[in-house]
Deep mutational scan, measured.
Amino acid sequence: KKVIATKVLGTVKWFNVRNGYGFINRNDTKEDVFVHQTAIKKNNPRKYLRSVGDGETVEFDVVEGEKGAEAANVTGPGGVPVQGSKYAADR
């Protein structure tokens, strides 16, 4: 997939743990970017499923997906693991 931007910061608008996807609002352009659970590179080690939490600040790359921009290599700011959704089960 073609990389559009790297190391972008954004805020998770919403993320559905059961369906495994959601949207991140970019801090720079204010665009909403699709995020799939497979794009989460550093999950919270205490969580079973990969997820990001609503309102969480994340860092990610933006790539060209089939339906427009989507997030890739999602981590917390500075490459730390994401916090994850409060609806995702703990280990």
Rank of each mutant, 00 (worst) to 15 (best):
K1Y: 15
K1H: 06
K1R: 05
K1C: 04
K1S: 05
K1E: 06
K1P: 03
K1W: 03
K2E: 05
K2P: 05
K2H: 06
K2C: 05
K2M: 06
K2G: 05
K2W: 03
V3K: 13
V3D: 07
V3C: 08
V3Q: 06
V3T: 09
V3S: 08
I4M: 08
I4P: 04
I4L: 09
I4A: 05
I4C: 07
I4T: 08
I4Q: 06
A5L: 08
A5W: 04
T6V: 13
T6C: 12
T6K: 12
T6H: 11
T6G: 14
K7T: 09
V8F: 01
V8D: 02
V8Y: 01
L9D: 09
L9M: 11
L9E: 09
G10A: 01
G10I: 00
G10E: 00
G10V: 00
G10F: 00
T11R: 12
T11P: 01
T11M: 06
V12E: 01
V12P: 01
V12T: 04
V12Q: 01
K13F: 03
K13T: 07
K13D: 05
K13N: 09
K13W: 02
K13S: 11
W14D: 03
W14K: 03
W14G: 02
W14F: 11
W14R: 02
F15L: 01
F15M: 02
F15P: 01
F15Y: 10
N16M: 02
N16W: 02
N16L: 02
N16E: 02
N16C: 04
V17Q: 06
V17E: 07
V17W: 05
V17T: 10
R18S: 15
R18W: 06
N19P: 03
N19A: 15
N19V: 14
G20P: 00
G20S: 06
G20V: 01
G20H: 15
G20C: 07
Y21L: 03
Y21C: 03
Y21D: 02
G22C: 01
G22D: 02
G22W: 00
G22E: 01
F23E: 02
F23L: 03
F23V: 03
F23S: 02
I24W: 00
I24Q: 00
I24Y: 00
I24A: 03
I24F: 02
N25Q: 13
N25M: 12
N25G: 06
N25C: 15
N25P: 00
N25D: 03
R26H: 03
R26Q: 04
R26C: 07
N27W: 11
N27M: 12
N27H: 15
N27A: 11
N27I: 10
N27D: 14
D28A: 02
D28P: 00
D28F: 01
T29M: 03
T29G: 05
K30I: 05
K30L: 14
E31M: 09
E31L: 10
E31A: 10
E31P: 01
D32M: 04
D32R: 02
D32H: 03
D32V: 05
D32T: 07
V33Q: 01
V33A: 02
F34K: 02
F34I: 04
F34Y: 10
F34P: 02
F34L: 03
F34V: 03
V35A: 04
H36M: 03
H36T: 04
H36C: 04
Q37V: 11
Q37W: 11
Q37T: 10
T38A: 08
T38F: 07
A39M: 13
A39N: 08
A39V: 07
A39T: 06
I40T: 01
I40C: 02
I40M: 03
K41N: 10
K41F: 14
K42H: 10
K42P: 07
N43V: 09
N43R: 09
N43C: 12
N44A: 08
P45I: 12
P45V: 11
P45T: 14
P45N: 15
P45R: 12
P45Y: 12
R46G: 14
R46P: 04
R46A: 12
R46N: 15
R46T: 13
K47N: 14
K47L: 07
K47V: 07
K47P: 05
Y48S: 08
Y48P: 10
Y48R: 12
Y48V: 10
Y48G: 11
Y48K: 13
Y48A: 09
Y48C: 13
L49C: 08
L49M: 10
L49H: 07
L49D: 07
R50K: 11
R50M: 08
R50Q: 09
S51E: 06
S51K: 05
V52Q: 02
V52M: 09
V52R: 02
G53I: 07
G53M: 13
G53Q: 12
G53D: 13
D54L: 11
D54Y: 12
G55W: 06
G55L: 08
G55F: 07
E56W: 03
E56C: 05
E56M: 06
E56S: 04
T57F: 13
T57P: 12
T57S: 13
T57R: 11
V58T: 03
V58M: 01
V58K: 00
E59N: 04
E59T: 08
E59Q: 11
E59M: 12
E59L: 12
F60T: 01
F60V: 01
F60C: 04
F60Y: 03
F60E: 01
D61Y: 03
D61N: 09
D61M: 08
D61K: 03
V62K: 00
V62Y: 03
V62M: 09
V62T: 03
V62R: 00
V62W: 00
V62H: 04
V63M: 14
V63D: 02
V63H: 11
E64D: 14
E64G: 10
E64F: 09
E64Q: 15
E64S: 12
E64I: 10
E64L: 13
G65H: 10
G65R: 09
E66V: 14
E66T: 15
E66H: 14
E66S: 15
K67S: 09
K67C: 08
K67H: 09
G68A: 06
G68W: 04
A69R: 14
A69H: 13
A69K: 15
E70A: 12
E70K: 14
E70H: 14
E70M: 11
A71G: 04
A72M: 11
A72S: 12
A72N: 13
N73T: 04
N73P: 00
V74S: 00
V74N: 01
V74T: 01
V74I: 09
T75C: 15
T75W: 03
T75M: 11
G76C: 06
G76R: 07
G76E: 05
G76K: 07
G76A: 08
G76L: 07
P77G: 04
P77Y: 06
G78K: 12
G78S: 13
G79H: 08
G79Y: 05
G79K: 08
V80T: 13
V80A: 09
V80W: 11
V80M: 10
V80E: 14
P81Y: 14
P81H: 10
P81D: 12
V82P: 06
V82L: 08
V82I: 09
V82G: 04
Q83F: 10
Q83C: 14
Q83E: 10
Q83R: 10
G84P: 05
G84E: 06
G84K: 04
G84M: 05
S85C: 07
S85E: 05
S85Q: 06
S85T: 06
S85W: 05
S85Y: 06
K86Y: 09
K86G: 10
K86I: 11
K86E: 08
K86V: 11
K86L: 10
Y87G: 07
Y87D: 05
Y87K: 10
A88Q: 07
A88V: 12
A88L: 07
A88E: 06
A88R: 09
A89C: 13
A89S: 13
A89D: 12
A89P: 15
D90A: 10
D90I: 12
R91A: 13
R91P: 07
